[in-house]
């Protein structure tokens, strides 16, 4: 089993973003009597940056475990050896029902290799609930700043092909730069060379 985490550098960047947004939005909100539309605008921005800060905290302690049977996530604050962890989630590869790989970036980064954009992998599947209960839907989402992101994508793509899951054209297109071609006949996804 291989374990991955978001590197401190990327988490630190997100903390700085959240702090900058909160200081500006909340700071202006607290400056005094604002017209209602300005207050609503900065209120909404404060909530947005607050949510982003919470997500960043969760991401700092997120631990992703990957093996041949499936993928698991756990929020584990503190020492990884002693801490029990919270919010465990598990998805067996044979229960995978959907896979999406999206690229987010400005128009400039869309046209430039190595631009400021990033990729996001979303996996959906069914996880067995408690005895007698129906299977519940599990969704996991990872960004390309996660250590071992290409390995996770590769493993998920392999599982998607084995499960004969429909992969949309956008995902197939985004897989190719990672060297994964879903149209390969069989076996492991084969690499494609860049032009």
């Amino acid at each position: 089993m291989t374990r991955y985490r978001y590197p401190l550098k990327s988490v630190l960047g997100d903390y700085l973003r959240a702090a900058a947004g909160l200081i500006i939005a909340l700071g202006l909100l607290l400056t005094g009597a604002l017209p209602w539309f300005v207050a609503v605008l900065f209120g909404a921005l404060t909530i947005l940056f607050g949510l982003f800060a919470l997500r960043t905290v969760k991401r700092q302690y997120l631990e992703v475990s990957l093996d041949d049977q499936g993928i698991a996530t756990l929020v584990r604050p503190g020492d990884p050896e002693t801490s029990k962890g919270r919010f465990p989630s598990y998805l067996a590869w044979q229960e995978l029902t959907g896979m999406k790989l999206r690229y987010f970036g400005s128009r400039r980064s869309h046209k430039k290799e190595g631009g400021s954009g990033f990729m996001q992998l979303t996996l959906t599947g069914r996880t067995a609930g408690p005895a007698g209960a129906n299977n519940r839907k599990t969704t996991m989402s990872f960004e390309s700043s996660l250590e071992g992101f290409p390995a996770i994508v590769r493993r998920a793509a392999e599982a998607a092909r084995k499960q004969d899951i429909n992969i949309d054209a956008t995902t197939a297109s985004n897989l190719r730069p990672l060297g994964i071609d879903l149209n390969a006949d069989a076996g492991r996804p084969r690499s494609v060379s860049r032009p």
């Binding site: 690229y103 128009r107 869309h110 046209k111 290799e113 956008t170 297109s173 985004n174 032009p195």
Partner: peptide
């Protein structure tokens, strides 16, 4: 427009602007 594009066409493009 950037948000709408991210929803409608979240594909990566390699150098040269061609969609791969």
């Amino acid at each position: 427009s950037d948000l709408a594009l991210a929803v409608l066409d979240p594909r990566i493009r390699l150098a040269g602007g061609a969609t791969k």
